[in-house]
Design a protein around this nucleic acid. Structure first.
Lengths: 368, 368
DNA sequence: CACCTCTACCGAAACGTTTCGGCTTTCGGT
DNA sequence: ACCGAAAGCCGAAACGTTTCGGTAGAGGTG
């Protein structure tokens, strides 16, 4: 290593060995000054050249790029941050129970999708978890207070979600995920009305007439959205809306819903087909139904919503409406970066969630 | 809002309204200069005062703190970063399939634990996901190249893990999670030998003599660790080591293992008790066994490893060895922050994982 | 009273970029 | 041959901290 020790100087140009780029172990890193010296230009030119800004001739640009490469120059994120008033990272605050990531496929894939986009632009994702709602809000606030992030994702939106006024007040770029139509910020959405309609069609065409729905907690907007889509689809077949039970997206919620809908009832008073608002609760529903001697798909048809891997493993395998969280993440990230860049960003609708019929749904029981 | 518009000046002291702390929506934020002006001191004194450094009298310190509070001063992370050469964030690169977070409880709770510690110190977690191994390594490298993080967690360690030499070369503080004894960096560990021994004792005391093990992929060190613990515990009962099948931590892996161990065999050639290296594969094993007409716990006892919530839902509920990833995260974060602060940090062993006997294990079949 | 020490505080440099006004140089047009 | 514009390049300020050397004054000592 012939690098001069101590602080680097203009003399860096002397170290003309053509070694490949190499990161210094300790903090003695190569800066824009070194590159400028080596290329024999001013640092402002280096900056312009490396950021593809006009005002640099092609010849010098090439020389600068070469010098940068030879020295293994990596622009300091810190200097950049301070100067350009950007953090080069975006935030996602997960505001549910810490055990969410355990069983919820959404965030894993969603984050995966986000990553692919961020990475390409040298942005990073800061993940925070808050179990309490209040705490979550505080998280957003502090994230914004020291400008640790340039923007945030708003997922799992609630009705009257306090995060919306918050980010507006803070002037923090944000994009919503599966937001309501009147959402005041850019949003990416995956429609579920098609999938739900397909499911209802599927069920009705198999002779089902007594349908029921297990919703999510009504504080989340998608509970209402799915309820509405369901009601419309059912009404389109001139059927009664059927029972609606509020669940909570958990396995136990599904169990409770099954108990509620299936115990102390004559078979012809039970629904013959049930849609649960997510796969996990559908799986709970199936388990409890089985315990109660109500078999799927013979005695009852059950469908979920999400398309988690586990659903294809259980027996009977779970019919579901498959969403594409990864794609949602990709689009959300793209939009957020655009918003941060100050571009006008339009809402995006990705391909709707579709019915994925599997083993847990089938013909209605004959005697019904 | 009586704040002077445009750039702030020393005249900030004039804005003597005692409003509560308030963050400016746009980038026109209150800086250390404003605080200094208001308190009538030099900015260096403000810095010292707010960072609890000596050289400030109690009186002025109080005055400064007050001024800072009145103005709602939040030190700029960016300025701080540049000046102090720290990023105030740490990195975690998850290097498995994006679907990992779907079904693996580990990361959710682990991250939750990390968060609680980081948050208290105003650190943030940067999460990256890389499906490919190489890609993952590149992630670490770029994370370090622009010094986006001050340290990283090394989880899911592999044998001869290339990340170890990498962080050493980069001089990047790191802590290992469940590392081998000869791990060259600080590590937090949760022993599983106790739990595995408890499980083997439990099985043997229930009359089991033909045991089998479904491991994880051998490229992960914990596959070897668990295999060793298992072998020793079995040997302690003077039993044959039994069959060992390599799984892959997935549901399908469990299915495959069950097919392998249970088909084309007379009942007295089958193992009567099986431990799978994680819960998910144990659940897969159970499902496949059931399909093959081998019932748990009557015909076969099956246990998992992890303690995921789902295990308590299925029927029979899954006996398992319960780990505490959250605690692992807490300790890992504590250690990493200490390492970053330059303190000497010793390895930590948290309370061992313990057997959680549930429905999927029981007495060995009578005829065996 | 002169000297020294220590404390509290200040000023300025440093961290590594981006950005902007201004200076040369070049070149096309008359 | 001259002028103006535009392009290429430079220097310096700015971003908001931390840190370090230095200074004034208080207080103690001989």
């Amino acid at each position: 290593m012939q690098r001069v020790s101590g602080r680097r100087q203009q003399s860096a140009a002397l170290a003309c060995n053509n070694r490949p780029a190499r990161v210094d172990p300790v903090n003695n890193r190569v800066t824009i000054v070194d590159v400028a010296a080596r290329a024999g230009v001013a640092i402002s030119s280096v900056s312009s050249a490396l950021n593809d800004r006009p005002g640099v001739s092609e010849a010098t640009r090439k020389r600068i790029v070469e010098a940068a490469h030879e020295l293994g120059f990596v622009p300091s994120l810190r200097g950049r941050s301070l100067s350009s008033k950007r953090a080069f990272s975006v935030g996602l605050v997960v505001h549910r129970d810490p055990s969410v990531l355990e069983s919820d496929p959404f965030f894993g894939s969603f984050i995966g999708g986000i990553e692919t986009v961020l990475d390409a632009q040298n942005y990073a994702l800061i993940l925070q978890m808050g179990s309490e709602k209040i705490e979550t809000l505080e998280r957003y606030r502090s994230l914004a207070a020291n400008r640790r992030v340039d923007g945030v994702f708003l997922s799992e939106l609630g009705v009257e979600d306090p995060r919306i006024p918050l980010v507006e007040e803070l002037g923090l770029p944000a994009v919503g995920v599966n937001a309501e139509p009147d959402f005041p910020l850019p949003a990416v959405r995956q429609s579920h009305v098609e999938g739900i309609r397909e499911l209802v069609d599927h069920l009705v065409s198999h002779g089902h007439r007594r349908l029921a729905l297990v919703t999510g907690p009504t504080e989340f907007i998608h509970a209402g959205q799915r309820l509405r889509a369901w009601s419309e689809a059912v009404a389109a077949h001139d059927l009664a809306p059927g029972e609606v039970v509020e669940g909570d997206f958990t396995y136990e919620g599904g169990v409770a819903a099954a108990s509620r809908l299936l115990t102390d009832r004559a078979p012809d008073e039970r629904p013959t087909a049930v849609m649960c608002s997510n796969d996990l609760s559908a799986i709970g529903f199936l388990a409890r139904a089985d315990e109660l001697g109500v078999r799927a798909p013979d005695d009852i048809s059950v469908a979920g919503f999400d398309g988690i891997a586990l659903g294809s493993y259980i027996r009977p395998s779970l019919s579901t409406i498959a969403t594409t969280p990864r794609l949602l993440g990709v689009e959300a990230a793209r939009m957020l970066l655009a918003a941060i860049a100050g571009e006008r960003v339009d809402d995006v609708d990705i391909a709707p969630a579709r019915l994925l019929p599997r083993g847990s749904t089938g013909p209605a029981p004959a005697h019904s």
